[in-house]
Design a protein around this nucleic acid. Structure first.
Lengths: 316, 316
DNA sequence: GCAGTTCCTTGACTTTCGTCAAGTAATTTT
DNA sequence: AAAATTACTTGACGAAAGTCAAGGAACTGC
């Protein structure tokens, strides 16, 4: 089927790019920039920003504890970092760049910039701008791709965190205000009656959404929220599509939703994603517009039933 | 000045992307995919396609002769490659993957595909297509950026190669035919009277173009050629901008050119790049349209005088 | 307050990577 | 045909990277 072929082509394009990019720039940036330092130490120096706990560093760089310990000792001997104990837990140690370390790091960055600049300087301004645009867009979408969508127990602490953030925001934006009591209860979403999805960026919740059965065949989408710091990446759309897929999996053929007139971005999103305005179908006092989208009919995007959201970690 | 700021922003965007991309996927693809093999051997296995001479391999991977020798011995012991002597010069040796080696390589590729697919599968089809589009565009532009533009002696073998390829193509496309004798002579382009630029992709000529003085302040652009295998990347535009910069450097304020009515792509390029059609200014029998562009006036692109083409190797 | 954990350091390796120099066989130059 | 050069292998070694286990100090849970 055609969507499978499309997927193959995407994978191929991604891999081609990845190979080309690492071959072209990866080599340079690694070897070159480390000054006279072994790669491991250079990488460490580069990764060090604010004062960091060794544990976090170890997790980030996936490095053996012993190795890290020795590398830091070497950097300390060169007076590039300062090690101290964490006052809160004196087993823990904290690394920090010294002034000299910061200078070295700046020099590293400068060299990396230089390599990038030499590459870019070959292009006339218009094409350079095109490249920058493409890379920025690609980065935004990659960032979006690594955000994990997971179904969550609506009674869980994480779900509550998302819903509270959502309610707080609505309270600020709706002229009439908004109360946590206006939300669906966990009970109304639990097994059989609906689903709750949350989006995690590096294990921190940055979005959510719920579907629940409205009548046989028809689901209602509610509480679509994207945290302020995660906006502009397309997460709203991704959540929307994933919620539609959940609805389809629950056996529905149509999704409806109601929204508030002040939520301009959301209204735009629904319109762009194939939703059509329909007459009022609910009595929710916070709703002024109602939308609907068929899950199987023709729309501006491929059949969402084909898109299977990953349940569980994406990189596990 | 504003163009400098733009450039900084481009460098920053490039570096941001580079960092993010290598952190996100580079690590995975290196570590993971090599199965249980050391990185060097995995890389070697990956790089081996057709039967390859060791010398070429050494040059490509920038690896010490001794190291390569030992790595290949290790791979041979695992029956992944076959070593034989080059019949033409029996000092030379040639590596080739065995059937088993090819299987291993395919497995490596499959894993890489899997990683890519897992990442991409998080995105709904529309956003996946957007990402693929952005990456494809970025790759095209990166490829374009590493094509080197060099001024060449128009009498050199490489220049002659380009011009012959250009003439051959015109001969096939023009109904009236085209002769090498219709080209400018090296003499007409040599020092003081004009400049000849050639584009090299990995040291192979893939395009060219010339400017020469038509009258004080006015340059003529001629013989703009892009090899068939390098088309679609934007090289025509890059050459055009570089030739304009050369003209500006020679002290001209205007560039003119004439072209043949069958050269649709070229005509489109000139139009997109700020050229306006003007009345006939030359008697060249192969020309049907004439164009002109001021080098200092306002145009759809920033002042080309700001863009300094790199003379000499870009990664030197 | 004591056993069990956690966080980190140290010691004792092995493997891999990278470099130099000596050596051998084939080829080219003189 | 001898000398020089080229293409590769082999030996020797040092530095870096990676692994495992033992141990000490600080914290946690009962």
């Amino acid at each position: 089927m055609s969507s499978h072929l499309t997927e193959r082509a995407d994978v191929t394009a991604f891999r081609r790019f990845s190979r080309y990019f690492t071959a072209r720039t990866g080599v340079l940036s690694d070897r070159y920039l480390g000054l006279a330092r072994p790669l491991g130490q250079a990488r460490l120096l580069f990764e060090l920003g604010e004062a960091t706990g060794l544990g976090e560093l170890r997790r980030r760089l996936e490095i053996d504890a012993g190795q890290l310990s020795r590398m830091l000792a070497a950097l300390q001997a060169q007076r590039l970092v300062r090690l101290s104990r964490d006052p809160a837990d004196r087993r823990r140690r904290v690394v920090e760049l010294t002034a000299r370390g910061r200078r070295e790091r700046a020099e590293q960055q400068r060299r990396a910039d230089e390599v990038a600049e030499r590459l870019l300087s070959a292009l006339p301004p218009e094409q350079r701008a095109e490249l920058t645009g493409a890379l920025t867009k690609a980065e935004r979408l990659l960032r979006l791709a690594v955000i994990e969508l997971r179904p969550l127990d609506p009674a869980s602490a994480e779900a509550r965190y998302c819903l509270t953030a959502y309610a707080t925001e609505l309270a600020a934006r709706f002229p009439e205000g908004f109360e946590v009591s206006d939300l669906l209860t966990a009970d109304q979403l639990s097994a059989g009656r609906g689903r709750f999805l949350a989006a995690f960026e590096e294990e921190r919740p940055v979005g959510c959404g719920a579907v629940r059965t409205l009548q046989p065949g028809v689901a209602e989408l509610r509480h679509l929220w994207v945290a302020a710091q995660a906006r502009g990446a397309g997460l709203g759309r991704r959540l929307l599509r994933a919620l539609e897929a959940e609805a389809a999996e629950l056996g529905h053929h149509t999704v409806r939703l109601g929204t508030h007139e002040v939520l301009g971005e959301a209204i735009g999103l629904y319109r762009r994603c194939g939703y059509r305005e329909i007459p009022r179908y609910s009595a929710d006092p916070h709703n002024h517009l109602w939308f609907e989208r068929p899950l199987t009919g023709p729309g501006p995007s491929p059949d969402p039933a084909v898109y299977r959201p990953a349940h569980g970690p994406a990189t596990g």
